[in-house]
Each structure stands twice: as C-alpha cells, then as structure tokens.
Design a protein around this nucleic acid. Structure first.
Lengths: 197, 197, 197, 197
DNA sequence: TATGAATGAGCGTTCATTCAT
DNA sequence: AATGAATGAACGCTCATTCAT
C-alpha cells in the first residue's frame, strides 16, 4: 500500500524516534515524569499517540530510552574531557566539565535529579543510571590518590556530594552564582597541597 | 445532652490526625507523593478512606500539614543547636546537628528532597519550605564571616551545597559512610585558619 | 445522667424537630434537594448531625416530613379560603388565594416544583403530594360547572395549567409582574358569561 | 502512513458522539441530571466510560451540548412554523407547533423542565436556554398586538404561562387530554374578537 | 508505517449513614 | 437526648495502553 525503500523507512523511523524522545525529554523536564502525559508528549512532538507505541512499549520504556541515550552522551563527554596532564589539572578538568555537561543537558539533568529522588522508579532504570555514581566516585578517588590526599575515599565522597549539591542548586535556583561557587570549590578542594598539608 | 466531653472528642481527633499524618509520611517517603494513593495511606494507617477528609481538605493539604509540622520540628532543633561558643564551634555544631536532624526525620527529608525536585508542586508548599534555603544560607554566611573567610558569600553557597549533597547521598545510598564523610567535611571547611591562609 | 421531666423532653423534641425541618426547607429551596447535604442542613439549623437521625431516618424521610407538613398547611389555607358566595366569587377567591399561599410558602413551592419535575423521586413522596393535583382540579371543575361552562372538564385542566404556569414563572423569574398577569387571568377566565357566550 | 482516512475518522467520531448524546438524553430524562451517572450513560449507550471524555469535557459539558443541539432543532421548527397568514392563524400555528415540538422532543423537554427548576445549574447553561423565554414571550406579544389585544404585554405573559403549564402537565401526567385542553386553550385565547370585546 | 478512537482500572473526593459514648 | 468521629460505596474524571484499519 505504501511502498518505500528500506532505507527511507529506516530514516523515517529514526526521525520519528528522535522527535519523540526529544519531545518527551522536554515535557518530562518541565512537568516531571509522573505529571507528564503520553498525549502531551505526542502532541508536543507532533506525532500520533499510536506511533509512540511502535517505538516504545510504555511510558516508562520511553523514559528508560531517554536516560540511556543521555547517559551515553554524558559518558562520552566525560571521557573526552579527561585526557589532560597532571592529576590536579585532570581533577580540575573533571569538575569543570561536569558543569559544562550539566549546562548542555540541562533538561536531562532536571529529569535525572527528579527521578533519583523518587523512590520506586530508579530501581527500574538502566544500570548506567546507577553505575554513574560509582564511576564518577572511582575516578575522583583515583585523582585524589594521585594527589596524595591522606583520605582519598572519604574525600572523593565529599567532593562528589559537593559537585552534586552545587549542580542541583544550580538547576533548581534561578540566578545561581555558579561561577563564584565553582571558583570557591576549586580553591577549597584543589588550593591546598595535600602532601605538605 | 450527654455526649462525649469536648476533651474526649479532642483526644480522638488528635489521635486520628496523628495516625493519618504518620501513615501518610511513611507512604509518601516510600512511594513519592504522586504515586501514593489515598487508599494506600488509609490502609497503612488503618483508618477509613474518608476519614482523611474530616481533617484535611485534600491530599495536597495533608502533605502541606506534614511539611509544616516537620519544618517546625526542624526549626526548633536548629535553634536549640546553635547556642554554643566560638564561631568555629557554632559552625561545627550547625553541620553536625543538620545530620542529626536528618537522621531523626529521615522520612520527612526523603519527601522533602523528592518534592524539591518536582516541578509544579513546590510552588504550592508553605513559605517555610521555601525560606528554609535562604535561612540556612544566611546563617552559614554569618558564621563564615565571623571566621574571617575571604569570600563568605560563595563559601556559604558551597558549604550549603556540600551539606545538601551529603545529606542526599546519605539518604539515597544504603551504607553511606556518613561518619567519615562528615569528618572530612569538617576538616576541609574548618581545618584551615582563614586569617592566615 | 441527664434527668428531665417527660414534658420538658417533649418540648425539646418538638423544638429540635422544628428547627431541623425549617433549616432543611431553606437549604432545599436554595440548593435543590440533591445538592443539599445533610451536613449543610445540620449546620444551618445549629443541630448535630446525629440528632437529625434521631428524628428522621434518612435525608429523604426529612424531605417527606417537610412536604407532608407543608401540604397540610396549604390544604388548611385552601379550605379556609373557599367559603364565600357565588361561584364566580369562589373561583376568583380560589385563584387569588392560590397566589397568596404561594407567597406565604415560597420556599416550599420552590422545592415542590423542583421535585415535581425530577423523575424518580416524586413517586416516593406522600400521597397528599400527588393528590393535590386532582383535588384542585376537581374543585376548579365544580366551580366551572356551576358557572355553566360548556366544557368544565377541559376548562378546569386549562385553568389549572394556567395557574401552575403563572406560579412557576412567578417563582423562577425575579420581577415577575404577578399583579398584571393575575388581572389578565381573571379577566380572561371570569370576564365572560359562559351562559350567553 | 496508511491509517483510516480523515473522513472515516470523522464518521466514527460523529457516530460515537451521537450515541453518547442520545444515551445521555434518555438517561437524563429518566433519572434527572444530578442522579444520572456517567457509568449509567456509558452503559446505556454501550460505550466505554472514558469515551465520553474524548468528546465532552465533563458531564455538564455533555448536558450543554445536548441542550444546544436540541435548542437549535426547536428554534428551526419554530421558525418553520411561523410563516402563515393572518395574526390569528399565526398565533394558532405557534401554539399548535409548540405542542408538536414538545411531542417530538419529549425527552429533551423533560430535561429542560427539570433543569429550569433546579437552582444553581441553569445559570451555567447556554444563552439560548435562557433567551428562549423572552423570545417566545416577545413573539406572543407581537401577535397579540396585531390582534389588537387591549393589554398585549400581560396577555402574552399569561398565554405563555398557560402554554408552559399545559406542556408540563402533558409531560408529567400520563393520559393527559392534550387535544381537549388545546381546543379549550384556542377557544379561550382566540375565540374572542378583541376589537369588539 | 501510522492513526486516533476506544477501553477501563484507578484516582481524588463527597456524603448519607452508623454508632460508641 | 445528643454528639460528632468514623465508615465506605459511589461519584466524576484521567490517562496509559490497545487495536482495527
């Protein structure tokens, strides 16, 4: 009835999927996952209700797909960002790039933080969602070890919490003075020489 | 003419209200506000579905009542905690008491954090819920000023974010090494002498 | 516990019953039977919820009691009103007294008309509620017969419908020109001499 | 790409809307608006409970849609009916066609009359619902003026009330002798020559 | 592939009614 | 006689999901 080449089909599929995921991310960020309706998303993405179910088995599936893809983006950005020189430079780069990534994927992080604090859902999210915590934690610890921090384990936890806290305040508060806080953060955590301290 | 005394009614009312609020707090903490149903709360509190509406005008009203009461408890605990000596001691006490309060009102803070990251609801919560941020922020800044911190504003933001971040990690992660992280936190923020630094 | 003389009890009973019925009639008239709640009535009558159920078995029972008593009042007023002279005078008196009774029991008639047009309820109302129709109809027919109307049966139906229609318009429309319409009514139905017509 | 055609969808929509409106009208007429439940309507119309909300925003919206459409039908029938010759003929035609329309839309008029006497609802019904009164009133007055009635204003009110009263008696009473009453009505209001009277 | 009409479980809420005191 | 706390069936409504085309 509607003949098209296989390739054209594939392109359409990808375009539709992309449109849906982008629309869903925007709606989830604005209204929260629970309060977003499938109809809202379909309408925002200019896609029919039924089409969504061709690509995603459920609302939750759609969320998972979004998280997965965004997490991959984030991971890629992170590994790009962490190539440079000394331990101190790498740690500084890690912190700074975190906030660059945050700014680039603002909608996603809004969703991320609202999901993380919603019990009962995060358990069903993809592994990458959970493992992100321990991954960043491990990397921080490694850098702090390299810097000869006397207690790299606890310091890594602390630094991670700090980054996480600043990130959230930055997202939830309009006019958050990110620049100043970031300066202060780097001064506090990297301004001292752990060897002589 | 000879019904229960007014006092007996008052006691009944208070008992029921308390039962409902406690049940609701537990359910909200476990499943999140949106995903908690009135039926769940009623059943968990072993009261009838409709009883809630004798005391609270709506599900949201119930949430607000819980937040209000918890916030009052928290504020009382905080002001108790901040009487002590030097600026350094007061700051240390503030940080430590924060985590004591967190432990004492675990369920409430779980709800608090999940609400804070939910767009569209926090706007309708009581003023105390919103002003808590700036209140604690102001106090931190005052203490850091007293300690002669060169940049008390930014440092207060940073310390607040750190406390917030640690609090959340402590809530969401089982087996969070709070003791060690807290030690590290105090060492990092209070172990230096800002005047000579 | 609460000793009182039998007589004092009876007085209390009657006073309470009266208060409840009056309150209910006012609420029913203002909001309609379905939309009036038992709580509204209790509160309006300054009586406890439970007390109402000492006197009336249900909301519907209360309505029935009100209708019964009001109908008795109305019937009494009617029989008082219809003693006078010639057929023409009696008919005129009947029509006029109808509207006097309407004005005196405005709340009741509001309820009456809203119930009459509500299917499913009027069937369960007391007999007097139903028989009122045929009673007035019969009386009108008798008077018209006396006046030698060529078709007293149909004319009675018509006159009754007219009275009923005017009564309702008078109740539902504010500023209804009842005086003028009533004049016109009497002129139309009584201004002709059926014998010579 | 190859779903149903737009026209096929439109047909489906119209069929469902029609089914729902018809079912609702019947249920509203039988039980009254307040006592009719959405589930009753859905079940009577053999559609799902939720389907109604695809087409109507609320139960009240459904009522409004029904009233609007019925009122349009009624208005069309009326304007068809009022083309004829002399004033007397036109007035006679107006009265007669009123009762033809009543018979054709029995269910609607039952609903109409029960709504009109229900406080608090009629205010939210469409304008046409309210203005119908004054429209018919004005027309009656115009005809009576043409007939040289000495007091066309009051007579129009009276005639309208009569028509209204007869219509209601005809609806609420089974075996109402409409023919005879209608004859009597026409004789009473049109059998006299106002000029010489 | 793509559509949107259709479904119905489950939600928050109301309110007549019961009952221990 | 009198109270009002407590109950739970039933309401209007929402929305993720299914399915015929």
């Amino acid at each position: 009835m509607c003949p098209r080449t296989a390739k054209a089909y594939e392109a359409l599929r990808e375009a539709s999927k992309e449109k849906i995921m982008q629309a869903a991310l925007e709606i989830f960020a604005r209204y929260g996952f629970e309060k977003s309706s499938i109809r809202q998303i379909a309408s925002h993405g200019e896609v029919s209700l039924g089409l969504m179910y061709n690509y995603f088995n459920s609302k939750e599936d759609l969320l998972i797909a979004i998280c997965q893809r965004s997490m991959e983006d984030v991971a890629a950005s992170f590994s790009e960002a962490n190539q440079a020189g000394t331990a101190k430079e790498k740690l500084e780069r890690l912190v700074k790039s975190s906030f660059e990534i945050l700014a680039e994927h603002r909608d996603f992080w809004q969703v991320f933080y609202s999901l993380r604090s919603q019990p009962g859902l995060k358990e069903r999210l993809p592994e990458s969602f959970i493992s992100w915590h321990s991954a960043i934690q491990a990397q921080l610890k490694a850098y702090l070890s390299e810097l000869q921090h006397p207690n790299p384990e606890a310091a890594a936890w602390l630094l991670f919490a700090t980054i996480d806290g600043v990130a959230q305040h930055n997202i939830w508060e309009s006019n958050y003075p990110l620049e100043h806080v970031l300066d202060e953060l780097l001064k506090t955590y990297l301004g001292v020489d752990y060897v002589t301290a």
